[in-house]
């Protein structure tokens, strides 16, 4: 795979801060990725912690996620304009989390369709004030001007929305509650690239903010089919066109971590972690145990397998415990 260095936008550095270049790489023909740092939000990384990017067709550009701040969104827009003058027709928000959604205002001048999961608007609406104040608190001036943009077009659960960029189509799918209750994936039929965003974490510990059982189901569906459906779920499984609609996946772009071509392994790694904590927590619930006991004992053998384990593992255990005790 060719990696083309296409854009280097040197950001203004506060004193004592290490240099971090805003670089979008072409990971497949016409698909560009600005990899996020595998860290938590901090002024050192400007909040550039999520994978964000864009897809260029013959007629239009679609942005996939926008970063944590207005400034990050504007940097992404500059990176696009160094490559093409085509209209930015779509800004796709893969889910509500601030590292993906808060740079959206940078594209207002392009008057794009802002597209998200049907439940994205509601989820953003109740979280935005908390997200914005958190970004201001952590990033200070770097978060200046950051504001919420609500989606103008929605994709329902199980629905697939096809967007024509000219010479290539992308297919947006809405999922039932998994990583969050508003996850969306993007499939590019020209290159067989599936942009899963935070439905897949690579190297960094998965963060559970939706439903563990729902998330495992999404991973199982993908892993067992080796392909992705690009049409809405059909009522009849015997539909002879079903196999034609299931397209090969050559690579997956995760929300955090490197692009994977041997992606079955990456899905398996994530499933191993999620299943391990589910099993451990169920056992403790069955014995009448508590969240505190689960946090102290479940899944600790996974510590060396994931970045940011100490920051998120206990939180995952707490959230999953509260979900599974209602089984």
């Amino acid at each position: 795979m060719r990696l083309l260095l296409l854009s280097m936008v040197l950001l203004q550095l506060p004193p004592g801060v290490a240099a971090w270049r805003f670089t979008a790489e072409e990971i497949a023909p016409g698909i560009y990725l600005r990899p996020g740092m595998q860290e938590e939000f901090s002024p050192r990384n400007y909040g550039h912690i999520a994978n964000i990017g864009f897809i260029v067709g013959n007629e239009a550009v679609a942005v996939i996620d926008t970063g944590s701040t207005l400034k990050e969104g504007l940097s992404l827009r500059r990176a696009i304009r160094e490559i093409t003058d085509l209209p930015i027709a779509y800004v796709i928000l893969t889910h509500m989390h601030p590292d993906h959604s808060l740079g959206a205002a940078a594209f207002r001048q392009d008057e794009p369709e802002y597209i998200g999961h049907k439940q994205l608007a509601g989820a953003l609406a109740v979280r935005q004030s908390v997200y914005l104040s958190r970004m201001n608190q952590i990033l200070g001036n770097m978060a200046k001007g950051t504001e919420m943009v609500l989606p103008t077009q929605a994709v329902d659960v199980g629905e697939v929305l096809k967007l024509d960029l000219g010479g290539r189509s992308i297919h947006l799918r809405g999922y039932p509650t998994a990583h969050t209750n508003n996850d969306l994936s993007v499939y590019d039929d020209k290159t067989g690239t599936l942009w899963l965003s935070d439905l897949l974490f690579v190297e960094r510990i998965p963060v559970m903010d939706g439903s563990l059982r729902g998330w495992l189901k999404v991973i199982d569906d993908l892993g067992s089919r080796y392909c992705v459906q690009i049409a809405a779920d059909t009522a009849s499984p015997l539909n002879s066109d079903a196999s034609k609609r299931c397209k090969n996946v050559n690579r997956i772009v995760p929300g955090h971590g490197p692009v994977v071509t041997q992606w079955k392994q990456a899905l398996d790694d994530q499933r191993r972690y999620l299943e391990l904590i589910a099993t451990g927590i169920r056992k403790i619930i069955k014995q009448g145990g508590t969240i505190t006991q689960a946090v102290a004992s479940v899944g600790l053998e996974e510590r060396d397998n994931w970045l940011l384990f100490d920051e998120f593992h206990g939180r995952n255990i707490t959230a999953v415990f509260a979900e599974l005790e209602w089984e």
Binding site: R127, V130, T180, D209, G288, A319, E323, W326
Partner: peptide
């Protein structure tokens, strides 16, 4: 910090659908 204003409902639709369910757990 943030427990009271941070939205804790991961899935509001599911939460409302089950509102009022109660259970006792014991050995």
């Amino acid at each position: 910090s943030g427990g009271c204003s941070a939205p804790s409902l991961k899935d509001p639709a599911a939460a409302m659908a089950q509102l009022g369910k109660i259970k006792f757990r014991m050995p």
